[in-house]
């Protein structure tokens, strides 16, 4: 047993875990910050919605699709100059966050758009009939009604970000993914591979069950 885990350096793994958590937390924060308004905008300007804007929606939709279809590893490399401009470096946790945010925001925005479309149109109509402003409709009716859906979208996005961070590890972001590649894969240290993958699995499990619990808690249907 000890023999098998001979390559494990607890300190190194602890540092990598922290890096992964920082990357995840930071990128999730900014993804929600940009993705939620983008999702609302996509919803409102979409076909037959409150502010249906055919041309605007088509352009926004296209940009979203382009960013979503770009493989994440390519996106990271393409973004290096912009990343350096924003954070001063393309390496480490700071260098990973901008591409993670750009990669996950369109994904999250689409999920938000879908969650908002699930809201009964009658509820929007009823709120309009009360004399609500558009802002009031969004904050008092649409977002509260779509809350379980948005929480589910956040969960899916967080888990997607975990796998993105592992990929980011390949180009110098650090974290558990980086350990898995450099030690587990390139140096054939299977024990490191197993431990890092297990840790990532635990993280995903935790995120999923937390998200599911929140969805149940906020669902009143």
């Amino acid at each position: 047993m000890n023999q098998f885990f001979s390559n494990i350096d607890a300190y190194q793994i602890w540092m990598a875990t922290q890096e992964t958590l920082w990357m995840l937390g930071g990128s999730l924060f900014f993804t929600l910050l940009f993705g939620l308004p983008l999702g609302v905008l996509l919803f409102l300007t979409g076909p037959r919605q409150l502010f249906a804007q055919k041309g605007f929606y088509a352009i926004l939709s296209l940009i979203t699709n382009i960013l979503r279809s770009l493989p994440f590893i390519i996106l990271m490399i393409v973004m290096i100059p912009i990343t350096v401009l924003i954070t001063g470096t393309s390496l480490g946790v700071a260098g990973a966050i901008p591409p993670l945010v750009v990669g996950a925001t369109p994904f999250f925005a689409r999920l938000v758009e879908t969650a908002l479309r699930e809201v009964d149109r009658g509820i929007i109509e009823a709120t309009q009939a009360m004399g609500a402003t558009t802002k009031q409709i969004i904050f008092n009716a649409l977002l509260p009604e779509a809350r379980p859906g948005i929480i589910a979208a956040t969960t899916v996005t967080a888990i997607t970000l975990v796998s993105y961070t592992a990929m980011a590890g390949a180009v110098g972001a650090g974290g558990l993914g980086d350990l898995a590649i450099r030690y587990g894969y390139q140096r054939f240290q299977t024990d490191v591979m197993v431990v890092t993958v297990l840790l990532l699995l635990v993280l995903v499990q935790l995120l999923q069950s937390l998200g599911d619990r929140l969805v149940v808690h906020f669902s009143r249907k």
């Binding site: 009658g122 509820i123 109509e125 009939a129 009360m130 004399g131 009031q136 008092n140 009143r220």
Partner: peptide, 27 residues
Amino acid sequence: VGMIFQHFNLLSSQTVADNVALPLKLA
């Protein structure tokens, strides 16, 4: 002008009291 609907159109995420309070809050 008040309005009521065939499918009620109540906010499922809000309590009965909060649903009734909504038009007052919006005002």
